[in-house]
């Protein structure tokens, strides 16, 4: 649903503009309005469409729900999107993650997997350099199919094993798809073991992608990101070089991976 901004009203001519202005104010009782952190982020701006958020309508396993978002506006625009915040309002910690984009990323287009405590409306909020705000929302029904009956989130034996897949070569300015994953329990600090002791929080809190020393994408992760954090994003390099990823754990420990990308 498109909000009326000054820009969009001025773009319309005569009768069209008048008709829109006389249209009753859309209730836009968006879920974002009921979440303090989201309202603060939006501030005085009037949010528009412009970010598409996708999650399955029904999820059989709340521990790993696929999520992706895509901002229409290209990152080489004069007023590009700088950040995207993801919220799961009904989770103990509603802020899922924050993504920081620079023009080298080509597109603000990310896929990951998240934990959803229960059925709820997930929210994505994009902010541009000038303070323009776009909101996308998606309602997800979370059930645990009776057949799963699994309490624990998956834990790989190989913590800190990383995987990185990037295109060997791209055409100049053409965004190339990058897949990344690191094995890690993303321990929330809310779980207890069989003896009743609380397992301490331990998460990957940051993933930084750079190329030639320049930032591509930085992701700040919270504990609503699923175990074994998976990130699919894009990179649009202007010259050949090495894509470098650094994962930082909340202990300060880091691990790296890299891939060569040639541009031609």
């Amino acid at each position: 649903m498109t909000r009326l901004t000054r820009r969009s009203v001025l773009a319309l001519s005569g009768a069209g503009a008048l008709a829109l202005m006389l249209r009753p104010a859309t209730a836009q009782a968006g879920a974002w309005q009921r979440l303090d952190a989201a309202r603060e982020l939006v501030g005085d701006a009037t949010p528009t469409d412009g970010i598409e958020l996708e999650l399955p309508l029904v999820s059989e396993n709340g521990a790993a729900v696929p999520l992706s978002f895509r901002v229409e506006r290209a990152l080489d625009d004069a007023d590009p999107v700088e950040t995207v915040h993801l919220f799961a309002p009904s989770n103990p910690d509603p802020l899922i993650a924050v993504f920081h984009f620079s023009p080298l990323a080509g597109r603000a287009d990310v896929a990951t997997r998240v934990r959803l405590n229960e059925s709820q409306t997930v929210i994505a909020i994009a902010r541009t350099a000038s303070g323009e705000v776009m909101v996308g929302e998606r309602e997800v029904r979370v059930t645990t199919t009776g057949c799963l009956m699994v309490d624990d989130t998956y834990e790989s034996a190989n913590v800190f094993q990383t995987r990185l897949r990037a295109p060997g070569s791209v055409s100049t300015g053409e965004p190339g798809k990058v897949l990344s994953m690191i094995n890690h329990p993303m321990e929330t600090g809310l779980r207890t073991n069989s003896s009743g002791e609380t397992l301490p929080k331990r998460i990957i809190e940051r993933v930084e992608a750079t190329m030639g020393g320049e930032p591509v994408l930085t992701a700040e992760l919270n504990r609503s990101v699923s175990a074994n954090p998976y990130l699919r994003f894009f990179v649009a390099p202007t010259q050949s070089g090495t894509l470098e990823l650094v994962w930082t754990e909340d202990t300060g420990e880091t691990v790296e991976a890299s891939a060569e990308i040639s541009v031609g």
Binding site: A64, L148, M149, V150, T153, Y154, M181, N183, A227, N228
Partner: peptide, 30 residues
């Protein structure tokens, strides 16, 4: 997927009956 139906029971049964004949690779192990 990283989790499947009756996973604990299957895994134990496989080891018990078939040793290391069956290898399962989950989503987070590519």
């Amino acid at each position: 997927k990283d989790a499947f139906s009756k996973q604990g029971l299957f895994t134990a049964g496989w080891q018990s009956l078939y040793g290391d004949t069956i290898e399962w690779v989950g989503l987070s192990d590519d």
